[in-house]
């Protein structure tokens, strides 16, 4: 459980990034945070693991109070709070496996990290995590040689290696094309369910949030302006969050065509989305319906290659 009580974040330059946030996020919840650029979504997420120190109020993860002042306490907290980044943030020059093993840092003696000599049990765990995200066969390849979607899977595996209670994700799929984005989100959701983790995800596209989250939090200018289950996050409500009418861009990720026939359908019924740049992208054709969990489909397999 994550509790924000009247949390403020004031940046060193005096800018107030979060204003009096009051939130309770329950164990096992999958929360999507939406809001315009600059609304404070990243700030909110980064406050949870202390990458951005909050300046007043109180913030706790489970029983642990986040204490930005104590490096030791922060490290202990972070070992239980994994984070996924928009730009994957893998170390490019080392292998996928070693990237995943970095997730074990908090449980590994410093001298072992220094030598890069991880325990066999940790290695086994890392392999299991890679299996979970479906790219175990890439274990000994350089991280930089992977595609974007695969790199984000490695990043997820790295977080899983931490055995986290909470997973934070800052626009985890914004750098990916829509079909890949859906596949990664689907995996994330599946893993989150399997492990019963709490998950907070920033999302650019409202429809990604609607498809995958249990609960949606809308932010504007550092404040929470909407908080409710997906069913309540209607277009009208979200337009209120954005304070403007929604454009094709806000929902673009949703109209991933399912097959060649449906591509034609989609363009016919939904001329608004003609500018969705991927309509004639062959990579898109035949991709799964967002949210479907069919592991046997072609694409799920392609994604693993």
């Amino acid at each position: 459980m994550i509790t924000f009580e009247n949390v403020d974040v004031v940046f060193p330059n005096g800018f107030q990034g979060l204003k009096g946030i009051d939130l309770t996020i329950n164990q096992g919840e999958f929360v999507g945070i939406v809001g315009l650029s600059g609304a404070g979504k990243s700030t909110l997420i980064r406050a949870v693991n202390g990458l951005v120190p909050y300046t007043s109020g109180s913030l706790s993860v489970g029983e642990t109070v986040v204490d930005p002042k104590s490096k030791t306490k922060l490290r202990r907290l972070r070992s239980k709070v994994g984070m996924i980044f928009q730009s994957f943030n893998l170390v490019n020059r080392i292998s996928v496996l070693n990237n995943v093993l970095t997730g074990r840092s908090a449980y590994t003696p410093t001298w072992r990290s220094m030598l890069g000599w991880y325990r066999a049990a940790d290695k086994e765990l890392a392999f299991q995590c890679l299996e979970r995200v479906g790219i175990v066969e890439k274990a000994y390849e350089r991280a930089s040689s992977l595609s974007g979607g695969q790199q984000q899977r490695v990043a997820i595996a790295r977080v899983l290696a931490q055995d986290p209670e909470v997973m934070l994700a800052d626009e985890p799929v914004a750098a990916l094309d829509p079909p890949t984005a859906h596949r990664v989100m689907r995996d994330l959701r599946r893993i989150q369910r399997e492990l019963g983790m709490t998950c907070i995800v920033n999302m650019h596209h409202l429809d990604l949030a609607r498809s995958y989250a249990d609960r949606i939090i809308g932010m504007r200018a550092g404040e929470v302006v909407f908080d409710g289950p997906v069913a309540e996050a209607t277009d009208a409500v979200i337009e209120e969050v954005y304070q403007r009418s929604m454009t094709a861009e806000d929902v673009v990720a949703d109209d991933v065509p399912v097959s060649v026939e449906e591509t034609a359908d989609a363009t016919e019924h939904d001329p608004d989305n003609d500018d969705a740049h991927h309509d004639d992208d062959p990579a898109v054709l035949g991709s799964d319906d967002p949210g479907s969990n069919d592991p046997g489909s072609n694409n799920a397999e392609q994604a693993r290659l």
Partner: peptide, 10 residues
Amino acid sequence: PIEAADSTGA
């Protein structure tokens, strides 16, 4: 990557 390492509690 440095931030990512920080976020794992290293």
